[in-house]
Amino acid sequence: MEYIKVTNVPPMSKESIVLCIGIFDGLHRGHQYLFQQARKLLNEDDKLAVWTFSSLDQTSITPIAQKRDLLERQGIQKMYEVEVSEAYTKITLETFTLEHLTLLNVKYIVVGEGFSFGKGHASDVELLQQLCERIGVQVLIVPLLRRNDKIISSTEIREYIKNGQVRSASQLLGRNYSLKGIVAHGNKVGRTLGFPTANLDQIDEYVAPSAGVYLGTVERYDPIIEQTESWNCLISAGYRPTVGGKSYKVEAYLLDYSGDLYDQTISVSFVERMRGEINFASLDDLIVQMKEDERSAREAFGMPLDRQNT
């Protein structure tokens, strides 16, 4: 996928594209449906492109690096990304359409029916259609996808994640919610308790699941064998009050794994919330609960109840 970072106006291009416009945070089922409709408009010489926006001032379901990966998996061939700044917020839809998009060879523009350009707009669909008519570009308005009579939205998914309702979030995303980061060296408390964990670093851009213990999976791409390996895991997300933790951390205890993941990039996916975070009276009480959590996790995953190769 070709990636173009836009700071002001896009570079001129004569390549024929069908252009989907939106924030696309989460790349949820509604976004996937929009891309499906856009693909139907493609001719042999057209490329499927996305114009999307990002901001450094807020957390995301899919920060930009992960969004790129997911867009490529959706068959997007070209990605224009704008980092929204104070200057960019002053650009009007008229300027965007008549001065920016005219630098590109856009065959169709595809947006959801709730499309708006900038904050405080109820809808800009009608204006977009009028402006595109002036420059000879057709506009496809895709109906918003619903589930249980509710519109699938990134806002709703964020709330599910913040409340620990990761299964509900996954149903709207079409995949398990995941965080991608680097395994950092921690204080190794888990190892001393008999539960060595992979501590995920560089995840501040993600929406943080509520504090608690989760069932999950860990994936790591191995460049030597050129394959992705995965393990079932228990995830601890929160502040670790029993051991005097102060900051929010995400740690994964990989079931039946033996090895060293330090400084490697892994993806941690949340399957189901098991319980909330507890401030135990003693480390012994914590260990008892961790053993019970592991037993429950093994039962849920259909794994042997005794540890293997650890």
Score class of each variant (00 low, 15 high):
1 M>H: 13
2 E>R: 07
2 E>V: 11
6 V>M: 02
15 E>H: 09
16 S>I: 13
19 L>C: 12
24 F>H: 01
24 F>R: 15
25 D>W: 03
25 D>K: 06
25 D>F: 06
32 Q>T: 02
32 Q>E: 09
41 L>C: 09
41 L>F: 01
58 Q>W: 05
67 K>V: 06
79 M>Y: 11
81 E>C: 12
81 E>L: 15
83 E>P: 02
89 T>N: 11
94 E>D: 14
94 E>K: 01
97 T>S: 12
100 H>G: 08
106 V>W: 05
107 K>N: 04
108 Y>N: 06
115 F>M: 14
117 F>Q: 12
121 H>W: 02
122 A>D: 13
125 V>T: 10
127 L>C: 09
128 L>V: 09
131 L>K: 01
134 R>W: 13
134 R>F: 12
141 I>Q: 07
144 L>D: 12
149 D>G: 03
151 I>L: 14
152 I>D: 09
155 T>Y: 10
157 I>L: 06
160 Y>K: 10
160 Y>C: 11
164 G>C: 10
168 S>A: 15
171 Q>F: 10
172 L>E: 06
173 L>Y: 02
175 R>T: 06
184 A>F: 07
186 G>D: 14
187 N>L: 00
187 N>M: 06
189 V>M: 13
195 F>V: 02
198 A>P: 06
199 N>E: 07
201 D>R: 09
206 Y>Q: 04
207 V>K: 09
215 L>G: 11
215 L>Y: 14
224 I>A: 08
228 T>K: 04
234 L>D: 10
239 Y>I: 00
241 P>T: 03
242 T>E: 11
245 G>I: 04
245 G>P: 00
248 Y>Q: 00
251 E>R: 03
251 E>G: 01
257 Y>N: 05
258 S>Q: 15
264 Q>C: 11
267 S>C: 14
272 E>G: 00
274 M>S: 01
275 R>L: 13
279 N>P: 00
282 S>G: 05
287 I>R: 13
290 M>W: 04
292 E>H: 13
296 S>K: 15
298 R>F: 05
303 M>R: 09
307 R>Q: 12
